[in-house]
């Protein structure tokens, strides 16, 4: 006689919104210090304040996440202040829609007669960078318009860079200088604000 087992693949209701918090298929759930799960949608709202970082330890990559040290009450408090803190970040960056901080620059040669590609590794401070979008690279006070050929590593299911997760932007290197410490910004429709 065949026996069927049905198991729900979530960690229970989210501590803040009550929706099922699942980790599979890009769920992005984080387990807080008091063992309560925080679903991916709630994490996304405050991730720009608690970026994930990785470090090498004994030939293994260790992920450091400051969010897991908070408990539910602290997360609720952070969520109340997060919109204001996001507005402060926007004001500090001249109202740009998204800002990316460059930590590392690599040049990739793609062929004999082809334009090399710059790989800018770093963190989006806030906002989202998607493949195929236009942005502006600010290098030593000068703005260079760039086209994002590809975005890798920031999001599991889409080619985009989310705030708080390390990702790599690929841009054509023709006449564009870049160095660590530069910023890539998306200005969007600021003139209408």
């Amino acid at each position: 006689m065949a026996e069927t087992m049905v198991v729900r693949m979530d960690l229970g209701p989210c501590a803040v919104c009550g929706r099922p918090a699942f980790t599979v298929y890009g769920g992005g759930t984080v387990v807080l210090a008091d063992q309560a799960p925080l679903c991916g949608n709630c994490v996304r709202r405050i991730r720009f304040l608690y970026p994930v970082s990785q470090r090498m330890q004994r030939d293994m990559w260790i992920t450091d996440d400051a969010l897991v040290k908070l408990n539910t009450e602290e997360v609720r408090e952070v969520m109340k202040t997060a919109p204001d803190r996001l507005e402060n970040l926007r004001d500090a960056n001249d109202g740009c829609d998204a800002v990316f901080r460059v930590d590392q620059v690599q040049t990739e040669k793609t062929g004999l007669f082809r334009i090399p590609v710059l790989r800018l590794k770093g963190y989006p401070l806030y906002g989202r960078f998607n493949m195929g979008e236009d942005a502006v690279l600010i290098h030593e006070g000068t703005a260079y318009p760039v086209h994002l050929d590809d975005v890798a590593g920031g999001s599991l299911l889409s080619r985009a860079g989310e705030a708080g997760y390390e990702c790599t932007l690929k841009i054509p290197a023709k006449g564009i200088p870049a160095s660590p410490g530069d910023t890539v910004v998306k200005t969007g429709r600021q003139e209408k604000l």
Binding site: M1, A2, E3, T4, M5, V6, V7, R8, M9, D10, G18, R19, P20, F22, V24, Y25, G27
Partner: peptide, 18 residues
């Protein structure tokens, strides 16, 4: 309403994954 993922596993009478 909210959604989640569910895993269904069927085991045959012989103990094999069905």
């Amino acid at each position: 309403r909210s959604f989640t993922w569910q895993s269904t596993y069927t085991e045959s009478s012989d103990g094999f994954d069905a």
